[in-house]
Design a protein around this nucleic acid. Structure first.
Lengths: 129, 129
DNA sequence: AAAAAATAATTACATTTGTAATCAAATATA
DNA sequence: TATATTTGATTACAAATGTAATTATTTTTT
């Protein structure tokens, strides 16, 4: 089968990626963005599963052997890349340009954002020559 | 709970959306893009579930009461909109611009695609004034 | 009319996911 | 030292998902 980070698990990864160093489970529970009001037990289960799935590492605390210090084993970049590919593949048959056009057409963008994206496209244009 | 079109079910919806008129289950089985080699039974189960979930309608054939003519009950547009929102929300904390920047930066685009997207952004710029 | 074929409905079943409680072991506290 | 607390490990359980077989019913064919 194809091991994957589930949507709920993603929030835990987010917390780990946002941290500069390893975090204990208590710290993770405290920091996880939890608008769905999950119980601390639930967050810990998600963390456990991420360890089992191989997306998270831990080191046992030197003084208190009960306490683990967790850190991500995979980079946010590679994970987002994968999600991006899956998304475009399923919903846009792999046509990135169509997807981009749709998002640009459907959403409000600030002037600043428009300039930034235009600049990016200009860079692409140069690069394509 | 929150009724949703699953990834596998999405392929069936795709087939229905691509068709100009209603399709029988046999036609759907024949047309579904099936790179995962699902059995016809599986496709039919997915179709059934879409009916139960309320995403697909059917009309019984006038001559053969066993044959149903299926059609989508929801538009591709609204469904993609929903998936788009969920995607940006989960993986980009709702920041569409960041998502767009990432996709533009990470992927190859043809000159034509670049021009098209630039034109879209220009239209946005006008509109923002 | 009986048999064969087709088709939707029902049932099956393992895996994943969301959500959490209980258990066991280690540490801190009384 | 006995007890309370903390924390990871294990177990629980319903719903969703992927995948498919079996059943029942209706036509078609012989």
């Amino acid at each position: 089968m194809h091991i994957n980070i589930s949507d709920s698990e993603w929030c835990v990864m987010q917390t780990l990626w946002e941290s500069t160093g390893p975090l204990t489970s208590a710290e993770i529970v405290a920091r996880v963005k939890n608008e769905k009001n999950r119980s601390p037990r639930t967050i810990k289960t998600l963390l456990q599963r991420l360890v089992v799935k191989g997306f998270v590492n831990y080191k046992v605390d030197e003084h208190d052997s009960r306490i683990y210090h967790y850190s991500p084993k995979v980079s946010e970049n590679e994970c987002i890349d994968k999600e991006n590919r899956d998304f475009v593949s399923l919903y846009y048959k792999g046509d990135i340009s169509e997807m981009l056009a749709r998002f640009i057409g459907d959403n409000d963008l600030t002037g600043e954002q428009i300039e930034e994206l235009t600049a990016l496209l200009n860079a692409k244009r140069e690069e394509a020559l």
